[in-house]
């Protein structure tokens, strides 16, 4: 799927969730955006769709930056993984998955990275209370 990029490129692009991989491919090929800086998500619980998935790209050739945003719903928080294009997406998408629950289709390894096995829930969602601890070791005090 060829996604045409707007010219001149605005600092932030809003795309549909299904077009994220194609947009990234176009950015890499036409815009020389070779560095995937960041993958994260924002939780807007009052809004449908609930999550914004936010990507930041940087070009080491033209020093340009662009932000790509897409929206996913709570019932199907799935987006294509950028791992085929950028190796840096490997760890960043794992973190986004465990913190928000966004599933990255095609990611080879969505194990928890900052959290641990047995942790239930997605802490950075607004409905996760900040003080809910899930200890692994029995407390003596």
């Amino acid at each position: 799927m060829n996604v045409p990029l707007p010219v001149p490129l605005p600092p932030a692009l809003e795309v549909a969730a299904a077009e994220v991989l194609a947009t990234a491919r176009a950015l890499k090929a036409q815009g020389c955006f070779d560095l995937l800086i960041d993958v994260t998500a924002v939780d807007w619980p009052q809004r449908t769709p609930r999550f914004d998935v936010v990507y930041h790209f940087y070009s080491t050739a033209t020093f340009a930056r662009v932000r790509v945003k897409t929206r996913v719903t709570e019932s199907d928080p799935t987006v294509d993984s950028l791992v085929p294009l950028y190796g840096s997406a490997l760890f960043m998408e794992r973190e986004c998955h465990e913190m928000y629950g966004i599933t990255f289709r095609g990611h080879p390894d969505l194990r928890p990275i900052l959290l641990y096995e047995g942790f239930e829930g997605h802490p950075l969602r607004k409905d996760y209370p900040i003080g809910r601890e899930q200890p692994l070791v029995k407390f003596i005090k």
Partner: peptide, 15 residues
């Protein structure tokens, strides 16, 4: 760090 991630003092685990 009084949140879900940090242990609130190691004396909860070891003396």
């Amino acid at each position: 760090y009084q949140n879900y991630a940090a242990v609130a003092g190691i004396d909860k685990i070891i003396p």
